[in-house]
Design a protein around this nucleic acid. Structure first.
Length: 893
RNA sequence: GCCGGAGUGGCGGAAUUGGUAGACGCAAGGGACUUAAAAUCCCUCGGGUCUAAAGCUCGUGCCGGUUCGAGUCCGGCCUCCGGCACCA
C-alpha cells in the first residue's frame, strides 16, 4: 500500500521535472495545473490504485492534453486547428492501395458563382457524412470535388464589369474552395477538376470528335429556341413556359445551323433501363420516363385531293379515325407554304406558333381524303401543331378531343361522334355540345369496326392500315435530339473547321485542345463572340491545307457535366492526354460507377439524363463497360425560410459565412442534418441552430466535467456477465450505449436517416449527463459511453469529435477509428414491457421476462386485477399475443 | 389537364413489417442557482373531463371500409407542394 506521503513525494519530484523541462509548454497556468494534478493523484489514491508509478503516468498524460481544451466550447479555436491537421496528415486523400471495397461518393459539383449558399451546405454536408461514415466502415472512399466553371454568369460579369471571365471564375473558385474547407468537408483536393481548363475540355472535344465519327454528333438546320436577351440558342430543356430559364424573357423561334447529339438513338434504352434504377428515387425515374415520353400509335397517309401530295399524320387514337373531320398542319410544315401562297396570312399564323393562350387556324383551301371512309375533309394550318413532334400534322377529331372541339366550334367544322361510352349512362345522352368525350368506349359510325371497344379497335385498325398500305404502326418519343451549339464565348470550342473545298472537317486529335482565346472582346451584343476574333477563326484546313475557318460556337455547358464523374477517376486530371481506350477502361473500371450520388432534384431530367446518355456513348466507344453511371441517387430537399425557397429577391437568404462565424461548421452541419430527413425540404430556424449549438456545448461540458476521471481509466469493453453486478444506472448507460450504436448505424444504413440518428445520440448524451464518475468502475462506464458518442458523432460533427477524442487522452485520431460495433446481448433487455389491450385499446402495462411463452403471457395478463375489472366477467373470445409488443384481449358480448 | 409527393401538438419532425401516436429538438410556462442578468440545471407541456392525481374520453386533412387492432392497408373526396404540359 502506498502512503499519501509517498505519493506526495513522487508528485513533487515529477512536477519539478515537468516545470524545468516543459514549463513554457504548460497548457494552463502552472499553479492551476499543479492543483489539478494533485487533485488527480488524490483521486487515484481514493480509488485504491496501489502503484506509485500511477501518479507519474497521470502527470505525463495530463501534460499531453490538447492545449486547446478549454472550459468553454469555442469552435473558432477547434475547427481551423483540426482542418489544418487533417490537411497536413492528408487524411482525406484517396488511398493508392487499400484493402477495403471501393466506395465512390459524389456530390453534384457547383457552378463557381462566387459564394456558397445554404443549398450547398446541405448537399455537401450530406455527402460528407456518407463519405466519413463509409471510411470508418473500412471502405476505400473516393470523395472528390470540382467546378462546373463554364457558363454565362462569367460572361455577364465580363460584359458588366470588364473582368475577364477566366479571372472572375478563378477568383470565385478560390473563395468557394476556402468556404468549403471551412465546413470541414473531407474532399481529396488532389483530384479537383475545373471544366474551363483546357486539360479538361479537350476531353469534351475528343468525345465530340468520337461522336462525330460515329454519327452521333451531326449538323442540321433547325428551328431553335432563341433568347433575344441572352442572344443565344437554348435547349428545349432550358425553355420554361416558353420563357428563357435564366433571364425569363420570351423565347422566339429562329432557324440556324446547329450541332446536335443523337440522344434519340438511345431513347428506348434510356427508357427501359429506367427499371433498373432501383437505387434512385422513384420520383426521378418517373420524371425521366415522362421526359422520354414514349407513345404507341400509327402514322396514316391522308392523300391530298387533286394534288400529288399526301399528309402524314401521327395519332395514338386510331380508334377515332372515322371521326376525323379536318386535318391541321404546323405552320412550319413544308406543305404549309405550298398550300398558302398568301404570305401575310401564313406569317400571321407562324408568328403565333406555339402560343398556348390562343388557338388560331387558317383554311388552306385544300382538301384531303380520310383513307378509312374516303371522305373529303378540309386542310387547315394551325398554330398549335408542333413541327417537332410526330409528323408536324394532325388529324382532328372534334367529338373526342377537347382542343379539336373548340377549334371546330370556332371555324364551324362538323363534329361526328364515333365513340360512345361503354356503360350507357343517363349522362351520355345529356352530354351537351360543350364538351368532347375523350375517354375510351365502343366504336359507332366506324364502318366494319363499329361495335369494337377502343382498345381492340386500335389494334385492328392499325393492322388494317398496314395491310392496305395507308400507313404503319409507329412508336413516338417526346425526347428530341440535344442541340449543343451555343453562340457564347465562355464554353468549350467545338473542334470543327469549315473549308470551302473540303466542307466540314474535324480538328485532328493531335491538335487538341482547340484553346479558347483569352483576348476576346465581350460586348453582350451580336451573336457569337468568337466571330470577332480573327486570330481564332483563321486557320488552315487539316485536309487540304488551304485557308479555312473555325467553328465559332461553343458547347452547351451540360456537356461538361455529362461525364465529369469519370474525370475524377483519372487520378491525374488531364495531366497527360492518353486516349487509348483500353487503358482508359482499366483506369475507370475500379472507381466507376458512382456508388452514391447526392444532389438537387432540379437535375432530374437535364444533367442526370445526359449523363446516362454519355455513359452509354462511352460504353459504345469502348471506354467503359457499364451503362449506368450512378447506382444510388439521393436528391436532397430545398432549404426553405419563411415558407419559401431562399432567394435574394425575397430577401430570406441565410449566409453560410455568418453561420460559421457565429456558431461554427459543426453546428451548421448538425442543424442541417437534424432539422429534417435529407430528401425533404428543410425549414430554416434560427432557434433550431441555437439548439444544435447547445447540444454540442452539452457534449463539450460533459467531457470537461469528467475529463480527470476519463484520464484515470483505460477504454474498457464489458461483456454481459460483468454487467450483472453493476448498479442499475451504470448498467442502463452501457445498455443505452450499445442500443445507440445499433440505432445510429441502422438509421444511416436505412436511407440515411440522419435526423433520427442524431436524436438517438442526444438521448444517450442526456443519459450520460446523469451519471457521476463516483468510482473507477463508473469512470470506465463513462469512458466507454463517451468514446462511443464521439465516434458516432464524428461523421456529423468531425471537429468537436476529433478535439474531444484527443482531450480525453487518446493519442490516436477519431478520423482513423473504426465505426463502433454493438453487443446485441447487452443491447437487448432481459425484461420487456408488454402492453395489455382490450379490443385494441390500451388498458395496462406489464413487465415480463423476454422470451416468455405466449400461454404464460396470456395467463399473467388475464390475471391482472385491472384487466379483470375491465372484462367484468365476460367471456374471452380471443387473445392475441404479438411477440415483444403486446397482448390484446377480445371479450365476447 | 396529366404524372408524382405530402397532410401528425404552437413549430421542425418521430413512430422500421398493421401493434403503446407525439421520440428528439424548438417555442412556451414554472422552479433552482445569482445582488442582477446571461448561461446552466430541474419540472410541466395534444384537447376535454376532474380541486388534483389516477382514471375516463376525444385525437394523425375529410367520409366510409377491412381488421382483435389503422397515422400505416383499401375505396371515395378536400387542401397544399413539385414536375410535365397545345405531345395529337
Amino acid at each position: 500500500m502506498v502512503s499519501e506521503r509517498h505519493v506526495e513525494r513522487s508528485f513533487l519530484s515529477e512536477t519539478k521535472k515537468i516545470s524545468t523541462v516543459f514549463y513554457q509548454k504548460l497548457p494552463v497556468q502552472p499553479v492551476l495545473f499543479l492543483v489539478r494534478v494533485w487533485y488527480n493523484i488524490k483521486g487515484c489514491l481514493r480509488n485504491g490504485l496501489r502503484q506509485a508509478a500511477i501518479p507519474c503516468i497521470v502527470i505525463q498524460k495530463k501534460f499531453r492534453r490538447s492545449p486547446i481544451l478549454d472550459k468553454k466550447y469555442d469552435p473558432k479555436k477547434v475547427e481551423p486547428a483540426w482542418q489544418k491537421h487533417w490537411e497536413e496528415d492528408q487524411v482525406n486523400k484517396t488511398a493508392s492501395s487499400h484493402p477495403g471495397e471501393k466506395f465512390y461518393c459524389l456530390e453534384m459539383f457547383p457552378y463557381p458563382s462566387g459564394n456558397i449558399h445554404m443549398g450547398h451546405v446541405r448537399n455537401y454536408t450530406i455527402g460528407d457524412v456518407i463519405a466519413r461514415y463509409k471510411r470508418m466502415r473500412g471502405y476505400n472512399v473516393l470523395h472528390p470535388m470540382g467546378w462546373d466553371s463554364f457558363g454565362m454568369p462569367a460572361e455577364n460579369a465580363a460584359i458588366k464589369h470588364g473582368v475577364p471571365p477566366s479571372r472572375w471564375t478563378h477568383e470565385n473558385i478560390k473563395h468557394m474552395k476556402y468556404q468549403l474547407n471551412q465546413l470541414g468537408l473531407s474532399y481529396d483536393w488532389d483530384r479537383e477538376i475545373t471544366t474551363c481548363s483546357p486539360e479538361y475540355y479537350r476531353w469534351n472535344q475528343w468525345l465530340f470528335l468520337k461522336m462525330l465519327e460515329k454519327g452521333i454528333a451531326y449538323r442540321k438546320s433547325s428551328y431553335v429556341n432563341w433568347c433575344p436577351s441572352c442572344v443565344t440558342v437554348l435547349a428545349n430543356e432550358q425553355v420554361i413556359d416558353s420563357k428563357c430559364w435564366r433571364c425569363d424573357n420570351t423565347v422566339v423561334q429562329k432557324e440556324l445551323d446547329q450541332w446536335f447529339l443523337r440522344i434519340t438513338d438511345y431513347a428506348e434504352e434510356l427508357l427501359t433501363a429506367c427499371d433498373e434504377l432501383s437505387g434512385w428515387p422513384e420520383k426521378v425515374v418517373l420524371m425521366q420516363k415522362n421526359w422520354i415520353g414514349k407513345s404507341y400509335g400509327v402514322e396514316v397517309d391522308f392523300r391530298m385531293d387533286g394534288m400529288d401530295e399526301s399528309i402524314k399524320v401521327f395519332t395514338t387514337r386510331q380508334d377515332t379515325l372515322f371521326g376525323a373531320s379536318f386535318v391541321c398542319l404546323s405552320p412550319n410544315h413544308p406543305l404549309s407554304s405550298k398550300l398558302v401562297p398568301d404570305k401575310i396570312s401564313l406569317e400571321e399564323i407562324t408568328s403565333r406558333y406555339g402560343k398556348v393562350d390562343e388557338k388560331v387556324g387558317l383554311f388552306t383551301g385544300g382538301y384531303c381524303v380520310n383513307p378509312m371512309n374516303n371522305e373529303k375533309i378540309p386542310v387547315y394550318i394551325a398554330n398549335f401543331v408542333l413541327m417537332e413532334y410526330g409528323t408536324g400534322a394532325i388529324m382532328s377529331v372534334p367529338a373526342h378531343d377537347q382542343r379539336d372541339f373548340d377549334f371546330a366550334g370556332k371555324y364551324g367544322l362538323p363534329v361526328r361522334v364515333v365513340i360512345s361510352p361503354e356503360k350507357e349512362s343517363s349522362e351520355s345522352g345529356a352530354r351537351g355540345p360543350s364538351e368532347a368525350y375523350e375517354e375510351e368506349g365502343v366504336l359507332v359510325n366506324s364502318g366494319q369496326f363499329t361495335g369494337l371497344k377502343s382498345r381492340e379497335a386500335r389494334e385492328r385498325i392499325a393492322e388494317y392500315i398496314e395491310e392496305n398500305g395507308i400507313g404503319k404502326k409507329v412508336v413516338n418519343y417526346k425526347l428530341r435530339d440535344w442541340g449543343i451549339s451555343r453562340q457564347r464565348y465562355w464554353g468549350t470550342p467545338i473542334p470543327v473547321i469549315y473549308c470551302d473545298g473540303c466542307g466540314i472537317t474535324p480538328v485532328p486529335e493531335k491538335d487538341l485542345p482547340v484553346v479558347l482565346p483569352e483576348n476576346v472582346k465581350l460586348t453582350g451584343t451580336g451573336s457569337s463572340p468568337l466571330q470577332e476574333s480573327e486570330s481564332f477563326i483563321m486557320t488552315s484546313c487539316p485536309s487540304c491545307g488551304g485557308k479555312a475557318r473555325r467553328e465559332t460556337d461553343t458547347m452547351d455547358t451540360f456537356v461538361d457535366s455529362s461525364w465529369y464523374f469519370i474525370a475524377y477517376c483519372f487520378g491525374r486530371a488531364g495531366i497527360d492526354f492518353d486516349t487509348d481506350t483500353g487503358k482508359l477502361k482499366e483506369e475507370l473500371g475500379y472507381w466507376m460507377p458512382v456508388d452514391q450520388y447526392v444532389g438537387g432534384v432540379e437535375h432530374a431530367v437535364l444533367h442526370l439524363l445526359y449523363s446516362r446518355f454519355f455513359t452509354r456513348v462511352m460504353r459504345d466507344l469502348g471506354i467503359v463497360d457499364f451503362s449506368e453511371p450512378f447506382i444510388n441517387l439521393l436528391t436532397q430537399g430545398m432549404v426553405i425560410k419563411d415558407g419559401a425557397k431562399m432567394s435574394k429577391s425575397k430577401g430570406n437568404v441565410i449566409d453560410p459565412d455568418h453561420l460559421i462565424e457565429n456558431y461554427g461548421a459543426d453546428t451548421s452541419r448538425l442543424f442541417s442534418l437534424f432539422a429534417a430527413p435529407p430528401e425533404r425540404d428543410l425549414e430554416w430556424s434560427d432557434k433550431g441552430v441555437e439548439g444544435a449549438f447547445r447540444f454540442l456545448n452539452r457534449v463539450w461540458n460533459i467531457v470537461v466535467r469528467n475529463v480527470d476521471s476519463l484520464w484515470s481509466v483505460e477504454m474498457t469493453v464489458f461483456d454481459k456477465k460483468e454487467l450483472e453486478g453493476f448498479p442499475s444506472p451504470l448498467r442502463d448507460l452501457l445498455r443505452k450505449t450499445h442500443q445507440t450504436i445499433k440505432k445510429v448505424t441502422n438509421d444511416i444504413e436505412r436511407e440515411y436517416h440522419f435526423n433520427t440518428a442524431i436524436a438517438a445520440l442526444m438521448e444517450l448524451v442526456n443519459e450520460i449527463a446523469g451519471v457521476e464518475p463516483s468510482d473507477e468502475r463508473a469512470a470506465k462506464v463513462l469512458r466507454f459511453a463517451i468514446e462511443n458518442v464521439l465516434l458516432l458523432l464524428f461523421p456529423f460533427t468531425p471537429h468537436i469529435a476529433e478535439e474531444l477524442w484527443r482531450a480525453i487522452g487518446n493519442e490516436t485520431r477519431a478520423s482513423e477509428q473504426k465505426w463502433p460495433v454493438w453487443d446485441e446481448d447487452i443491447a437487448t433487455t432481459e425484461k420487456i414491457e408488454l402492453v395489455i389491450q382490450i379490443n385494441g385499446k390500451l388498458r395496462g402495462k406489464l413487465m415480463v421476462p423476454r422470451g416468455l411463452p405466449d400461454e404464460e403471457i396470456k395467463r399473467i395478463a388475464l390475471g391482472e386485477e385491472k384487466i379483470a375489472e375491465f372484462i367484468g366477467g365476460r367471456d374471452i373470445k380471443k387473445v392475441i399475443v404479438v411477440k415483444g409488443r403486446l397482448v390484446n384481449i377480445v371479450p365476447g358480448g
